[in-house]
Simulated scan of single mutants.
Amino acid sequence: MSAQLIFDLVPLGSLIRYSDETPRPPERFRKKLTSWENRNSVGRLIRKQVERHIGNTMLPACITLHEGDYGSNGIVTIRVHRTFSADSDLKFTVAERPAIGSVRVLDRPGDGAELVYLASHRADAEEWLTKHGYPNAILDEVTADALAADFVEGRAAA
């Protein structure tokens, strides 16, 4: 599916695979493998940003995936996010949707909110919030109705 369909149909918190559909090069070709890995990976959908205008420039809608955190001793020093334009030439697939009953912790209400934590249940989300500073955070429980919204005009987000 396209990045636009991910934007339109897939809920925040889903694991998304993206690919340029080229075969993986052998391990011995380090530079080719690194280049391939930049266009073929997986991440959690944390943000959807609508099309916007800045002066005379139009920025298309985009999605942001969280690919990982790096650090040591429980301290995150680097957080890797990757943003894709809705007109990206890559192919996207949904690897996993958030479980019913899980709770999304969003950094703020409204459009453009970013998923900062996906909790397994409400108590976990509330405990996480007490340890992290997000004063405007909201809790959004994943319901069966929210996941049913993946169906639009008879099509399902695959």
Rank of each mutant, 00 (worst) to 15 (best):
T77Q: 08
E96L: 07
E96P: 01
D89V: 04
S85E: 09
R108E: 10
S102N: 10
I78G: 00
V103K: 01
R97M: 15
G112H: 09
T83C: 07
H81W: 02
R108V: 00
G110I: 01
I78S: 08
S102R: 05
H81D: 13
V76E: 04
A113K: 02
D89P: 00
L106V: 06
T83E: 11
V80S: 05
V76W: 03
R97K: 13
G101F: 12
D87P: 00
H81T: 08
I100T: 12
V80Y: 14
I100H: 02
T83P: 00
A86K: 05
D89S: 09
R97Y: 15
G112V: 02
G110C: 05
R97H: 12
G110Q: 07
T83R: 13
A99K: 15
S85V: 02
V94L: 06
R82G: 00
P109C: 04
L106I: 11
P109T: 05
A113S: 15
T77K: 12
L90F: 07
D111L: 09
D107E: 06
D87Y: 13
R104K: 09
R104L: 08
R108T: 09
F84M: 03
A95Y: 11
S102C: 14
E96H: 11
G112R: 12
V105G: 03
R79E: 11
D107V: 10
E96S: 13
I100D: 09
V80G: 00
F84K: 01
E114R: 15
T93L: 07
S88V: 02
I100R: 06
I100G: 10
P98H: 10
E114I: 13
S88K: 05
A113Q: 08
K91F: 12
V80N: 12
V105Y: 02
R82Q: 14
V103S: 01
S88A: 07
G112Y: 06
I78P: 00
I100M: 04
V80A: 08
A95M: 12
R79K: 11
R82V: 14
E114M: 14
V80L: 13
D107W: 01
R82Y: 09
R108K: 15
T77D: 03
R108Y: 01
F84C: 10
D89T: 08
G112A: 04
V80F: 11
V76R: 09
V76K: 12
V80I: 15
R97F: 15
V105I: 14
F92Q: 01
R79W: 00
P98Q: 06
G101L: 10
G101S: 08
P98W: 08
V105H: 00
K91W: 10
R104I: 01
L106N: 07
T83L: 03
R108N: 04
D107S: 14
L90R: 02
A86Q: 11
V103Y: 02
V94A: 04
V105N: 06
P109H: 06
A99R: 15
A113H: 04
A99N: 12
D89G: 01
P109F: 02
H81N: 14
